[in-house]
Write a protein that binds this DNA or RNA. Structure first.
Length: 707
DNA sequence: GCGTATCGCGTTTTT
DNA sequence: CGCGATACGC
């Protein structure tokens, strides 16, 4: 039996870790070490002799699960490698493939993401002629969120519209029709969306008592992280799984519930004691992350919340700066302020990866990205578009998906649209013919093709015929696909294919780690890889607040805190949405350990292209002014990077790649003087700066001058 | 006239 | 990137 020590935990954490029987609800404030508690819980159970495969760890992202298992393994040796951990969706997927026949599903279903679901709904919407003459008809995005919202709340669409979207009452019939068509479309094409994965998992547990018994026996210790982000179905899955043994521990913070648009309901956490009447409640109230000034401010933000579990967070971390608020003139001034603040932090020795810029929506950072790029400052953007969500990635994945599921109409449609002279209408006609055929592959040869596309179409048929004969590993298939796709790709994205090419290369390196296509496709859908590229580089982080959840940084800058941006203008005044936006700000601010800034632009460009003065976010107005320091807007001279490099008496000149040999002295607008140490691969250059240490610069962007 | 290609502009948050 | 408006071609 492995040795295991837990005396570094506080008393409440220790109680949570060592309660091995009965349901436990852990209410944990931000920075209270809840991840640590879960890690220790896994380690403790293993040390107590619980077999690893009896432990199920459900987390919000797969990364979080992997991280926890890895840390637990380092506490007790390699035991936790057999612990099951992952997201609800990933585990549902595994189970449903195994038990598909019990539910009357083909085991070769494809999983579709949000964008796919919206695409299907849009297609159905236009083919049913909805929204044609009626301009008020909701957008595809709204429709999908309504359909999915009804499923997640386990109520009918009628009730949902009645209760939450009464302004859409006139469209009720159309929405119901749309819903039926959407369901039958998915069934015909053997597709499952995110909701189906959960709904079918629940169906399995309810309708198949033997399967439920087997799973309950298998997963004898269940742990759920971020429980406030679960929806009703997930809560019920947990209840059903734990029904026979009650060994379940859920951890969450009602103040950090920010996913209600996806069906999450933080009342779940309040209702846990109803689901499990003999539940033990444990509160983790000591904050180990932030300094006291930051904690005082974040407490003030959440103080105004309408509804919350009472908990008082305290910290023993002494000292620290007061958070700062900067009212910028406009977006550009805001971006420059942020850049300067980052520069100072880096100069003070804070590693770039310990600095995060957070914002409400993906596009709020566009201006800042421009400034950073022009300065040659390396950063990583999280949130917004994912690698596999871009069109060229979906193209490649479509071929693979068809190999596994030839009834996947969405993928057929993509493949057809790549051909010249084939548009949405023709693609849809072909797709409809294929999926209703007994053998789609045979039907493909028999499609009525018009003369103008015959050549391209024949190429496609030959390509698929060759591909299907291969019984090759994914990597070989990928290379085969690229033989066909590469020319198509260059024609389709003629303007920017070099940039996209890098994504394809990245996909190749990801695919080489897989032994079968099915799991590769599932993983890229359920857990899309970042566009970022290699990991663990020392890079500044730009992230939406949603994507920064669960992380922490030495320094955090929250930007775009202006009226209309934060809270988002669609959040109605004082409703549930409003409250969620407040919690979102709380999540953002609680990511900071030592330094925290708030900024907002005083001027924005709305759609009508006229600058408009905007006020500070109303949430900031609720904070007592003595809790933060207000910075005066400064008159700013144009930074060096925007001045054109000109030859001076000392003969400074702009560097070209050929000049940059190791040992060369250079000057950078941001980092000052330095010495070239090495010419790294792919247009990258390592420079040792006198004041800032070793940096890797992009030759394409960084403006270097020779000294 | 139907279907396809092109251009310009605005963008909530995501397993 | 995706949407709508507009232009072009069969």
């Amino acid at each position: 039996m492995p040795d295991y020590e837990y005396d570094t935990l506080n008393e409440a954490q220790r109680r949570a870790v060592t309660t091995t029987t009965g349901p436990v609800l852990v209410i944990a404030g931000a920075g209270s070490g809840k991840t640590r508690t879960l890690v220790h819980r896994v380690a403790y159970l293993l040390a107590e002799g619980v077999e690893p495969w009896h432990i199920l760890l459900l987390t919000f992202t797969r990364k979080a699960a992997q991280e926890m298992l890895w840390r637990a393994a380092s506490l007790v040796g390699n035991f936790s490698s057999q612990v099951t951990g992952g997201t609800f969706h990933a585990i549902a997927n595994n189970l449903l493939r195994r038990y598909a026949d019990l539910l009357g599903y083909p085991s070769s279903f494809s999983i579709i993401d949000q964008a796919d679901a919206e695409g299907i709904v849009n297609l159905l919407k236009s083919s049913l002629g909805l929204g044609r003459e009626n301009r008020q008809f909701p957008s595809k995005r709204t429709i999908v969120s309504i359909l999915s919202g009804a499923v997640n709340r386990s109520i009918s669409i009628e009730d949902l519209i009645d209760r939450h979207h009464s302004h859409l009452a006139e469209h009720l019939d159309d929405l119901l029709t749309l819903y039926q068509h959407y369901q039958s479309y998915k069934r015909q094409h053997a597709l499952m969306d995110y909701d189906d994965l959960l709904v079918n998992w629940r169906r399995l547990l309810i309708e198949q008592p033997e399967a439920r018994e087997a799973l309950s026996r298998r997963f004898a210790y269940i742990m759920v992280d971020e429980y406030q982000d679960t929806n009703l179905i997930q809560a019920e899955i947990v209840r059903l799984l734990a029904a026979s043994h009650n060994n379940v521990m859920v951890v969450g913070d009602d103040s950090q519930s920010i996913y209600s648009f996806r069906g999450a309901d933080f009342h779940n956490i309040m209702r846990f004691p109803e689901l499990f009447p003999d539940a033990t409640l444990i509160k983790l109230e000591e904050n180990y992350r932030s300094s006291q000034p930051i904690l005082s401010l974040t407490n003030a933000i959440i103080e105004a919340a309408a509804e919350k579990y009472a908990k008082t967070l305290f910290s023993r971390i002494e000292g620290g700066d007061k958070p700062k608020l900067y009212a910028a003139q406009d977006e550009r001034d805001e971006a420059l302020f942020v850049v300067e603040a980052i520069q100072k932090l880096v100069a003070d020795g804070v590693p770039a990866r310990e600095i995060a810029v957070l914002f409400r929506s993906g596009f709020h950072s566009f201006k800042l990205e421009l400034e950073l790029t022009s300065l040659g400052f390396d950063f990583e953007k999280r949130g917004g578009l994912k690698l596999t969500e871009s069109a060229h990635m979906k193209d490649v994945l479509a071929f693979l998906r068809l190999l596994v599921n030839p009834r996947d109409g969405l993928s057929w449609s993509r493949v057809f649209l790549q051909l010249d002279k084939i548009g949405p209408k023709t693609a849809q006609k072909f797709t409809a013919a294929l999926i209703s055929a007994a053998d789609p592959w045979q039907e493909l040869q028999a499609l009525p093709v018009s003369a103008s596309v015959r050549v391209g179409f024949a190429g496609l048929c030959r390509f698929f015929a060759g591909l299907r004969q291969e019984d090759a590993p994914p990597l070989a298939l990928y290379e085969k696909i690229l033989e066909y796709y590469q020319p198509v790709f260059q024609r389709l994205y003629a303007d920017d294919y070099p940039k996209r090419q890098k994504d394809l290369d990245q996909l190749k390196s990801i695919i080489s780690g897989y032994a079968d296509i099915q799991s590769f496709i599932d993983d890229t859908t359920l857990d899309p890889p970042d566009t970022g590229g290699s990991v663990n580089r020392d890079r500044l982080v730009l992230s939406t607040i949603h994507s920064a959840k669960g992380l922490e940084f030495d320094a955090v800058l929250v930007i775009g805190l202006a009226e209309g941006r934060f809270p988002h203008s669609a959040a109605g005044i004082m409703g549930a949405q409003w409250e969620e936006e407040r919690r979102l700000l709380y999540v953002a601010a609680t990511r900071a350990r030592k330094h925290l800034w708030f900024t907002y632009p005083g001027e924005l460009m709305p759609p009508d292209r006229m600058f408009k003065r905007v006020a500070m976010s109303p949430f900031l107005g609720e904070i007592p002014p003595h809790l933060y320091e207000r910075l005066r807007p400064r008159h700013r001279s144009i930074p060096a990077s925007f001045a054109r490099p000109v030859a001076t008496a000392t003969m400074i000149k702009a560097a070209t790649a050929a000049d940059l040999t190791p040992g060369r002295r250079v000057s950078h607008a941001f980092f000052g003087a330095g010495t070239v140490t090495a010419l790294a691969s792919e247009g990258r250059l390592d420079v040792h700066f006198d004041r800032h240490g070793l940096k890797t610069l992009h030759l394409d962007y960084a403006k270097l001058m020779l000294l």
